[in-house]
Nucleic acid binder design. Sequence first.
RNA 1: GCGCCCUUAGCUCAGUCGGAUAGAGCACGCGCCUUCUAAGCGCGGGGUCGCAGGUUCGAAUCCUGCAGGGCGCGCCA
Length: 583
Amino acid sequence: MDIYKSFRVEVDRALDAMTAAGDMPAGVDRSKVSVEPPRDPAHGDMSTNAAMVLAKAAGKPPRAIADGLARHLSAHPDVTEVSVAGPGFLNWRLRPSRWRATLRDVLAAGLGYGDSDVGGGRAVNVEYVSANPTGPLHTAHARGAVVGDALAALLEKAGYAVTREYYINDAGAQVEVLARSTHLRYREALGETIGGIPPGMYPGEYLKDVGQAIADRDGDRWLSVPEAAWLPAMRAAAVEIIMCWIREDLGRLGVAHDVFTSERALVDSGAVTRALTELEARDLVYTGVLEPPKGKTPDDWEPRPQTLFRATSFGDDVDRPLKKSDGSYTYFANDIAYHLDKVRRGCPTLIDVWGADHGGYVKRMQAATSAITGGEGALDVKLCQLVHLMKDGQPVKMSKRAGTFVTLADVLEAVGRDVLRFIMLTRRNDQTLEFDLAKVTEQSKENPVFYVQYAHARCASVLRHAADSGLPTAPDALSAADLDRLDQPEEIDLVRVLAGWPRLVEAAAEAHEPHRVAFYLHDLAAAFHALWNRGKDDATLRFLIDADPNLTRARLAMVAATKTVVASGLKVMGVVPVEELRG
RNA sequence: GCGCCCUUAGCUCAGUCGGAUAGAGCACGCGCCUUCUAAGCGCGGGGUCGCAGGUUCGAAUCCUGCAGGGCGCGCCA
């Protein structure tokens, strides 16, 4: 169990005792009481805000409550140095043996250390990537892919039942364009000279491969038939081939979705019509005329009655159209049906990972999700800001229009999967990210990937040396070590960081912020590197002490636990830990 | 014009449901390799948390207004 959580229980017991003694009114709301590490370690190992939070309801000054809590807590066998500070913080320290005990927890749990049950097995659907099937993945997609995948892994570690989902946008005008562009390349593959690619068509060279593949499979059967005949065939074939590429790229990135949902299949099944019927039943659909967007009116704007969803009743700024002027459904209408579908499949908690250019779409989708599910479903949207691809400090020029964008496959080839995944998680999702192809493969402290991997490799190195000397390195053997031999302050510092991993997993999962794992691992690596270097100044602080097998075994337990927690964190990030950095 | 996101050290960024003297890396200055990997570690200088109000025991964090940057704004997805 998380060490902070277990002391939160102790605080509860103390409060119970105070209530029983009449020092505290019964039924006081304790939901804001927390036990956490103080920001400044000088204040102690743990701290609670209970006295300040409860002062008003208890009708007592914070310090009086804190004094009462202090009396109860100081009776705990693992607690020392209880003190009341500042406006009413209650601080205390733990006996070092209590901290050291976490090493056994880590060794016993292995990579499962930090697993939590806060999720309680509740279902969460994480939808991410969902790139349009009109071309290969490029760098902009990589961030959403990594963030979504790491978030899914994090939620699983925190005890949620996670579904990883990809929404294939294979309906609508853009796949029609794809079909026409593909037909052009198909004709080209059969020997026709097509000249330039007309405006409005996808110019990318990659469509040549699609055209060729269809020519190889079907011969010339789509050459002299009317568009109505070849268009659906081109569309289906192109989407299938490109989705195959996308899955390959995701596979290379180590991303695997559980569910792929087709927009077209959803529309064909009548789900959109049914969803709109449900909205109508709730009186959330009407026909109205929208104001033109101010400041940037389209040239061909004319007021027109439209089928609208009452998004404003759910916090959006304007009501949103559900049908185009030709009577077909808007993308938004399809998306409402899709989100309803996700909830109806048994998952009220939805997370969508989107690109920054979809920011204007968040409110309406949240409004719609809430409306269509009658408040049962809740949608959180993680918007990933832009990735600026750089090389040696200079921006890499990209233009999708000219077909010169950098594909995900290119970047993967240049830097590797693990580097790409780690770097994508070194920023909050709503912060823009600079990705320098040169810097991220440097082996220096400036590169967080290297820094964390180096810590893992150093742990592995120590364990290798130990094994070479015939020392036991298996977890159960190390668990039997006399951990009281770890009496250096820096050693306890490191153990404290290790003990913070379960708490971090829960906090990051609840906040839907996988990047916190990357920052935690950086801190953990720093604590380990610091300890390592202490052995440079003072040989008695090295991990392997030939003359003292018992001390060595205790220190190996600490090293093995550190290696395990680094690996556990990297696993959430989808990064493979390295055993060795030098070839 | 409106909406969303961002603004923290010279630079790039963290900052836990509001918590104590706001942190890390880079850069700068000074130290540490006969040693388990020095691709590392230690010490030091460096801040009006964009600006102005408000909420309260307490605000970088929540609310309001303003400024600067990014993204978006019916019949694209």
